[in-house]
Design a protein around this nucleic acid. Structure first.
Lengths: 345, 345
DNA sequence: GCCGCCGGGCTAAACGTTTCGCTAAACGTT
DNA sequence: AACGTTTAGCGAAACGTTTAGCCCGGCGGC
């Protein structure tokens, strides 16, 4: 037994009850044409009387606009995306739009499937943290003239608006902070190579080392695959080195947690035995020990800005070539970084 | 300049290209009637050739089913909901449904507005963590025969399926753990009074005290409004008491964080000066100090179960009176609880 | 050899809106 | 009074599907 919506009350029921035409009902609902006050009143009464609620599906079909945004991220479980989503949701509903949420787990096949779904559903706009830079099925939205905003990450070859943070500067500041404390052997745990943020943050790491005249040791750079377990493994490898680093920089929050697990498992103290800095702040970081020194991103604002861009395109108030909104991260210094053990050098 | 979807490629373009009728195209796409292999092949080729993508809006209008679920929670920023959402999203997309996400901030007016929106959009089903027990506009979905599942919280007067955790038992175990360590003055921080979980968790707290023969002191029970700042204030009040408690139980994660802030602000050590236990585990709780002793809920599974119930109703495999799925929480003992300072008593 | 049935595909009517173009009345102007 | 012009409201054609019902030809049964 498949369940169907019970036959609903339509606009014609209202028209009948108010003894006006369907067009008049539509006009009073949408304020799309003049309707005399008397008729308006009759229509409103009829609407209440028969218990009419407009059908957004039928409206979407006719208007060719769905009042719906697609939001594709890698994982809602990650606190970084959480505030982003919140910012997007708030801004979208403030403009009467609903949001369809999609988690890709950084997998291109999932991303592709979701984009197909969203395309079928004729979303009005798409906000996307792409899982990789090779795919080009995003292009469809551009060709269809559907606004597309990349968030957090970008794909340089695809001409779309972008909201990101200055990852290079953020990472450079964090590593410079470690350098300033006297560290010379500074390890880094990098993320997935197909994501733009990875390269930028590693670039910042390199810049900070170079500025300090510290030669980059390739053995100190490990791939954590942007994941918790990967971060833990990478950290383990770094700590098992013949001459382990005195400080480690993790390029995202998940890998930082993995790093902390590796630290705890070895009975090391932070920051006494090892200094730790990472990208991505999280709300509760200040309550627990060690209080992590992090590069904080304005996540909520990033979400809000992305929606702004999107509606700018939708309403035509924004046109022309793609815009790139680059927000500033801030280094939040807490307790997880100290001077290297055994004094300078 | 308002942007419209460009005139899209419709099923009739495919029909024309394949030199068959529209009905045949539809039948081969949906496997809803026999179509000879030869024609199927021609249709598929035509689809690829003209680049056809079905319009889900038009389909929804005709089929009276949207393949969309509504999900209404209080705040996606809260890690408790985060795993819940993930479980729901995974289960929903496994069945080809999309999810519209709505945050109420525990406000009834927002909840009402969202339900109105979801109603207009003719969602196939609704999963809801209600912000309060007084409203009854949820009834519409029941009357319209749209499956509705309450999650995390319930409204006893509304006959709908429910997925919750055994809050009474969970709270009782946590507080019994404190009692077992020797605590007799145990404070509690309660949440919003209009939410069912609040009452159940406080009931568990009371049961544990009673079982231990400890008289309940009303001064030790404070309202934290389910929020971080409320928890901090409530904790402050408890700690300023002439005879402060030696242990505090917070009935959700946000208030627990507020509690920890109050503890840190006063320079107290946990668990040496004060033992802390709370409801709601979070993924990273084991990495930082103090490692909180918490009552963990199977959040991902709760989400998945809610979707199962919902599809059971949708497909008719589940019928009859509302089901109540009660999952078991587990007490995760870590380091935030110890014996009361100054030994027993 | 005729009839009935059925396989395979088509025609056309929905689904519930919005909106274009039209009518008919009212009005102002000479 | 005749004539444009505006105005309030209506009728009907879309929007892109699904699906009920129909038609036609071939085949088996008698």
């Amino acid at each position: 037994m498949s369940r169907l919506r019970s036959a609903s009350i339509t606009i014609r029921d209202v028209a009948r009850a108010a003894r006006v035409s369907i067009a008049t009902v539509s006009a009073t609902i949408n304020r799309t044409a003049y309707v005399s006050p008397a008729l308006q009143e009759r229509v409103r009464k009829a609407i209440a009387e028969v218990g009419y609620h407009p059908d957004a599906i039928a409206r979407s079909l006719k208007r060719r606009a769905t009042q719906t945004l697609g939001l594709v991220i890698s994982d809602i479980t990650n606190p970084f995306f959480t505030a982003l989503v919140r910012g997007i949701e708030d801004a979208a509903t403030a403009r009467g739009h609903a949001v369809i949420l999609c988690n890709t787990d950084e997998r291109l096949d999932k991303e592709r499937a979701y984009l197909e779904l969203l395309r079928s559903r004729r979303i009005d706009g798409l906000i996307l943290a792409p899982a990789g830079a090779v795919a080009d099925y995003h292009r469809f939205f551009i060709e269809a003239n559907t606004p597309l905003v990349f968030i957090d990450r970008k794909i340089p070859t695809i001409p779309a608006d972008v909201v990101v943070v200055d990852n290079v500067t953020g990472a450079r500041q964090a590593v410079a902070h470690l350098v300033g404390l006297g560290h010379r052997r500074i390890g880094a745990i990098s993320g997935l190579p197909q994501i733009s943020t990875t390269h930028e943050r590693i670039a910042g790491y390199r810049q900070a080392l170079e500025a300090a005249g510290v030669p980059a040791d390739p053995a100190l750079l490990r791939d954590g695959h942007s994941r918790l377990d990967g971060g833990e493994r990478a950290a383990g490898a770094l700590l098992e080195l013949p001459v382990p680093p005195t400080a480690i920089f993790a390029t995202n929050n998940l890998m930082a947690i993995g790093l902390m697990r590796a630290v705890a498992a070895r009975g090391l103290r932070c920051p006494e035995d090892l200094s730790v800095a990472c990208f991505d702040d999280f709300e509760w970081a200040s309550v627990f020990r060690p209080r992590l020194t992090t590069v904080a991103q304005p996540t909520y604002e990033m979400g809000a800005r992305a929606v702004e861009l999107l509606f700018g395109r939708l309403e035509g108030s924004l046109s022309g070539p793609p815009r790139e909104v680059v927000l500033a991260p801030t280094l939040v210094v807490r307790d997880s970084c100290g001077p290297p053990p055994g004094g300078l050098r």
